[in-house]
């Protein structure tokens, strides 16, 4: 997941390295570091804005390590799902247990169905639905779509996926 974090560092040498060390220790991937030396806080501290990608279960460790080093963590904003995708389903979507279809994706832990638009023209005619999927990463998105395709095969639904997946 992607984490955006506001820190406050003491205005003494070596603080920035100290702040980045826990991220690197837990194999986080730094996206950006903005060091606002000119915007000192009233307490004389220097605001730093970090953005990095990290496995979700490592975030708490990073925060504890930072606090142990005397760095104030002012705010943490985590964005778990980086990938947004859409697919279309055609077939008897509702009567083949739509809840089960959604649950199977949601239960993966790496992807969720976040929106569903359903069009049911007439009884006994196939329905169409557009599904929005959020996933942790590109790989997880294609895994989620593969999963949907295998569910669709069992339920005789047609999945129309975007180009460029895989």
């Amino acid at each position: 997941m992607r984490v955006s974090m506001d820190l406050e560092l003491k205005d003494i040498p070596g603080q920035l390295v100290l702040a980045l060390k826990p991220v690197s220790e837990f194999k986080g991937n730094l996206i950006s570091v903005v060091h606002h030396h000119e915007k000192k806080t009233p307490r004389g501290k220097i605001p730093v804005h970090l953005v990095f990608e990290i496995k979700p279960d490592h975030l708490d460790n990073i925060i504890s390590l930072l606090e142990e080093s005397g760095i104030s963590v002012v705010s943490v904003d985590e964005k778990r799902y980086l990938e947004h995708g859409a697919v279309i389903l055609i077939g008897h979507i509702v009567h083949t247990d739509i809840k089960d279809t959604i649950d199977k994706v949601d239960n993966t832990g790496y992807a969720e169905i976040v929106d569903l638009n359903l069009s049911m023209p007439r009884v006994n005619r196939p329905s169409s639905a557009s599904l929005k999927i959020d996933a942790v990463s590109k790989q997880h998105m294609s895994a989620a779509i593969e999963l949907l395709k295998s569910i669709a095969k069992e339920k005789d639904l047609l999945v129309i996926e975007p180009i460029g997946i895989n």
């Binding site: 279309i88 055609i90 069009s119 329905s127 169409s128 639905a129 047609l158 129309i160």
Partner: peptide, 12 residues
């Protein structure tokens, strides 16, 4: 198997 509804949902 493509339906006009699927095309319009996609278009939206």
């Amino acid at each position: 198997r493509i339906t006009p509804e699927a095309l319009s949902l996609a278009n939206a």
